Every structure is written in C-alpha cells, then in structure tokens.
Amino acid sequence: MKIVFAGTPEFAAQAMRAIDAAGHQIVLALTQPDRRAGRGMHLQASPVKVFAQEKDITVLQPETLKLTHADLQKRAAAQEAYQCLSDIDFDAMVVVAYGLILPQEVLDLASRNGRYGCFNIHASLLPRWRGAAPIQRAIESGDVNTGVSIMQMDAGLDTGDTVLVGELEITPHDTSASLHDRLAVLGAELMVKTLNDLDKGLSLVRTPQPSLGITYAEKILKNEAEIDWHLSAIEIDRRIRAFNPFPGSTSSLHGEQFKFWNSCLPGGVQTYQDALPGQVLGFSEHGVYVQCGEGVIEVLEMQKPGGKKIAASLCISGGTTANSPMRFEKLENKQGVENV
C-alpha cells in the first residue's frame, strides 16, 4: 500500500520504520519544522524526518495545515502541502503524534477516490485519556493498564472509531520513558496489522467510542514538576515516574535544585514520629528515604544541577538525624517567595 505518514517524535518514527519494513511504500512524510535543541540550541530534525531522508522520502514541514491561516506565509505553506497531497497517489494516511491538527479538508482528501482514510496510533485505551499526554497522565493517575488504539480519524480530538486495540499492564516501576517504549512497539505492530489487513482486502470493524469514561490528558507543563512533599507517598511516586523524562520532578535541598528521576514505595521503613514532609529519613543501598505527607517514598535516581543522573544515595551527601534533618523543600523564585 502507498502511505502518507504524518508524525514527529521517536514514537512516530518507530511506527514509520515498521510500516516500511512490512513492505508498504511511504510516498510522503509530514513532520513539524526543525526545532532548536541541546546545549548549543542547534536546529535538529525530527526522528520522522531523519528516517524519511534515509529512505529518500519527500518531506514537508508546514507550521500549520490550516488553509485559511491569518499569517500569509504559513497559509502558503499549508496550501502547498495540501496541493502536494492532492497530486500524490496514496491509499491511506497514518498520523502518529504529529503535533498539528488535521483540518477537515485533509481528512476528506484521505478518503477520496476509494482511499481508506486517515488512521491514528493513540497511546491509550480510548476514550480513556484523549489528548496530548496519555502516557504521563495514565501513570500519574495510578492506572493499572493502558494500551494503544488504532483510530479512524475524524475532526474531533481523538473521537474517531477504533479499529484495533491492544492492552498493556502499567507496572509499579514504569516511568513514562519505559512505558513509552513498550507502547511504541505495540502501536507499530497494530498499525502494520491494520494496513496488512486492508492490503488483503479484509474489512475493518469500526467501533464507536463509548460516551462514558471519557478523560482528557492535558499537556504536561513545567510548573507541574515541583514536588509537593505534603502529598502522599503514592501520589509523589506516581508523579516522579510520570514526569520522567519530561519535565523531571524537582525540589530544593540547601538552596540547590535537584531533579528526581525514579522512585518506589518501600516497605517496613521506620519513620521519625515528628518527621516533616520532605525530610530525609535515611539511606538505602541505592536510594534515599523521604517523609511525605502520608507515608515514605524511596527516591532511587536523582540529578544535581549540571550533573548526571545517578543513584540518589550518591547524589546527596551527609547524614541526617532527628536533631539535624536534611529536608527537601519547595523551590524559591528570585524574590524569595515560594512558588505556588
């Protein structure tokens, strides 16, 4: 089958590689414009663009696909992309974490002339966690399972019929990074199966999403990263794991900002009767025990400013006693006022 592929991050590139390896021909790639990243803030191509260039696939990078955009330059780029889609011969369009809204004109174009339409790989069990950050919000909310939905796209926000669904367990040790990798593999497998079935002439069973159980995974904001040690250990553990790799949970110790990358809920840890939230209670082999508003968390991996991710027990030094405790606290802004 001839495929138009729209996507940007590694999650999308993995599906793109699997589609290519399965023998389908990707005739055009849409991806977001190159972005500045890294310490040198150099322009970097998306993983989708990198793979497309390796395979000599034509790449388009409009900032929007809105044909009536107020900005004349952006509108011209969108119209150019639409004209290219109109001129090219393809059977279906696959969209994976593209980052741009597909207008109705593009959706209609993907369904014309006997085409199969536009399919999306969404990393949740729809209608649970529609929106931008389904992986992070599933961990943060304590979901015990998640999965991938192959969806026939419509004009709504992740509202289309599902045609194939696969489920995965969320383990107590999963971070967004580890869960992302497992979901990327599953999503690629399910998308290839969908395209293979179409290529064989098999009919897809479209299942409308139920009206109950709809939740929205709002975009992760950097200001969510700061740890509120007055929350329970369960909530803090989930957030630390959910915000790995972005934006990384943060807290302050002796005026230094630390990042927290991994944690777990320990068993049988003794606590000081008068311990305060954020107080370091002691050290494990690799971790640090910290008092929370309710319960104790074992922080496993941390990072000093300008340093590397290392075992939490190596990241902070010094002992702690009931009379002289180390305590993680909220960060302070330049005016010395605590963030809220």
Rank of each mutant, 00 (worst) to 15 (best):
T321H: 07
T58W: 03
A132R: 04
R75Y: 15
A311Q: 02
E10N: 09
Q291T: 00
I26S: 13
E226A: 06
F283S: 00
P305W: 01
L100Q: 06
M302W: 02
L276M: 13
H286R: 12
V48D: 09
Q53A: 12
A22C: 12
G99R: 03
R130I: 00
P172N: 01
M1T: 05
S263T: 04
A123C: 03
K193D: 11
A18G: 04
S178H: 08
T271D: 02
T8E: 14
L30V: 09
Q152A: 07
A52S: 08
I3V: 05
R137M: 14
P103R: 02
Q270C: 10
L300T: 15
L168M: 08
I135G: 01
M41K: 15
G287Q: 10
Y272H: 15
S313Q: 11
P210Q: 02
A225S: 14
A37K: 14
V185G: 08
A133Y: 04
C264G: 08
V50F: 04
L125S: 01
D87I: 06
M302S: 03
P210N: 03
K308S: 08
R128T: 13
Q61V: 01
Q25E: 08
I121K: 02
I227C: 10
A217G: 08
S86A: 15
F119H: 04
S86K: 14
G38D: 05
L314N: 15
G295V: 02
H122V: 00
Q273N: 10
E80G: 09
A184D: 02
M41L: 15
I150Y: 07
S317G: 15
S203F: 10
D87E: 05
I227V: 06
C118S: 00
D34E: 09
D174Y: 13
S251P: 00
V165L: 11
S203Y: 14
K308M: 12
I19G: 12
G255N: 10
E235K: 10
E256Y: 03
G187D: 00
V296L: 07
A217D: 06
I3N: 02
R17N: 06
G23A: 13
R238Y: 05
S149D: 04
A77G: 07
D174Q: 07
G319R: 14
D34S: 13
A225H: 05
P245G: 07
S252V: 08
V163L: 10
E294V: 01
S263D: 05
P277R: 00
A52R: 04
T321I: 15
E167C: 04
G268N: 02
S178W: 07
V4A: 12
H230M: 04
A76W: 13
A15V: 04
L100M: 02
E285H: 10
F119S: 01
Q279E: 11
D228P: 01
K219M: 02
N120H: 00
N196S: 03
A78I: 03
V27I: 11
V106S: 10
C315Y: 09
S141A: 15
F260G: 00
L164F: 03
K49N: 08
T207N: 06
V296Q: 14
I139K: 00
Q32M: 12
L109W: 07
E140V: 03
L85N: 03
V288S: 10
E226F: 05
S232E: 06
L164K: 06
F5L: 09
E298C: 00
D174I: 08
E235Y: 11
D89W: 05
R115D: 09
H24A: 07
G293R: 08
R182H: 13
S284G: 04
A81I: 12
E332H: 09
I220R: 04
P266W: 11
Q61E: 01
